[in-house]
């Protein structure tokens, strides 16, 4: 992590798998080349470790420990990163003492240029090897440890960047600081503006959250045409009669490209499931409140499996083997989806 001012936080944990499908990720190939390169070289702390900053920190945190006061005071170990922060200074310059490397600047620049302009901090792992005392001069070096593939989170789509910093006091290693940020493209601008407008006008009417729209293309158009007629269609290879789902251009068994369809009877059982607790997606929660909801892998009577929601029972009553029956749910005026109703009432 560069030692600058980019520390934030938010709902940045990865979202449900249904949001995460990303076909090609060419940017990742370019970003991942930066792993192992320096993030900061020979950075120096803006100020030596000092009693006033320690006191301000303790006052803010409500930390009354006597270890951080008096003639033998040490700095709270959790201040480690604070000593490396640039503070309220202008845009980075080569000699601004932050030591930020050209490589790290390029990496962030690539992300900014691709629209991933926002940043939040998600993880901080620190190890403290020796106490910091007033007067200690801080220096640091950091490396870009890794860049993730593109991930979709509640905040938006982006890339996690992990850096690891060695912090030295008077030249001696005093601590290590691993830091992870999400560089992302905000996903909720519209909804935030709406919330903001609501605050200003005291308007309380609430728009329902909408589910994401399906991406319909030549390979799956037949499936969605079936849904529109309330038929769940499974592809069948006309060469070897193997059923397949989800829809694909070719047969995984014989590589045949010719196919027809079989309409699912609608009977199935829960093969596996997960419960989505956080972050909340109000559109997926039957109550619209964003509470937990179950995402199940349904094994249809025909033998293929499909991901979907289970209705008719609370999320915590979904279990492996639960018999379900297909039905179609209109989630909003423009979207209808196959869902699966538990057929034994719990």
């Amino acid at each position: 992590m560069k030692p600058g001012t980019r520390a934030g936080q938010a709902d940045a944990q990865e979202a449900s798998p249904s949001h995460g499908a990303e076909a090609s990720d060419q940017l990742y190939e370019r970003l991942s080349a930066y792993a192992g390169r320096p993030a900061a070289t020979a950075g120096t702390g803006r100020d030596p470790v000092n009693a006033p900053m320690i006191r301000h920190w303790c006052e803010a945190m409500g930390d009354t420990s006597p270890a951080y006061r008096g003639p033998d005071a040490v700095a709270p170990p959790t201040m480690l990163q604070a000593w490396t922060m640039r503070g309220l200074s202008a845009d980075p310059e080569p000699d601004d003492g932050t030591g930020r490397s050209a490589a790290y600047g390029e990496l962030l620049g690539l992300l900014d240029g691709a629209g991933y302009t926002s940043v939040v901090a998600t993880d901080c792992e620190q190890e403290y090897l020796r106490p910091l005392r007033p007067g200690d001069l801080i220096t640091f070096d950091a490396v870009i440890e890794s860049v993730s593939r593109r991930k979709t989170t509640k905040l938006g789509t982006g890339y996690f960047v992990t850096t690891c910093m060695d912090v030295r006091a008077d030249g001696e290693l005093a601590g290590t600081h691993r830091f992870r940020i999400l560089k992302y493209r905000p996903a909720q601008r519209k909804s935030a503006q709406r919330k903001s407008a609501q605050r200003r006008t005291a308007e309380v009417e609430k728009e329902p959250a909408l589910r994401p729209r399906p991406v319909i293309n030549r390979d799956n158009a037949g499936f969605w045409a079936g849904v529109a007629e309330h038929r769940l269609l499974i592809q069948r290879c006309t060469g070897c009669a193997t059923l397949r789902f989800p829809w694909l251009p070719g047969c995984n068994a014989c590589a045949g490209q010719e196919w027809d369809t079989v309409e699912a009877s609608g009977e199935g059982t829960v093969f596996s499931h997960v419960v989505m607790h956080h972050p909340s997606f109000p559109a997926f929660d039957p109550s619209g409140e964003g509470g937990p909801y179950a995402v199940a892998l349904i094994e249809l009577a025909e033998g293929v499996r499909i991901v979907g929601n289970v209705t008719g029972v609370p999320y915590d009553k979904v279990r492996v083997g639960l018999p379900v029956r297909l039905e179609f749910l209109r989630t909003d005026p423009d979207l209808e989806l196959p869902v699966f109703r538990a057929s034994e009432g719990g």
Binding site: A7, Q9, M61, A121, R189
Partner: peptide, 20 residues
């Protein structure tokens, strides 16, 4: 403007509170 309903605590403060 950045999509957050309000200001929010930074990770360093959370770190400090956990340590405290």
């Amino acid at each position: 403007e950045k999509g957050s309903p309000d200001i929010f605590m930074n990770i360093l403060t959370t770190n400090g509170l956990v340590g405290r």
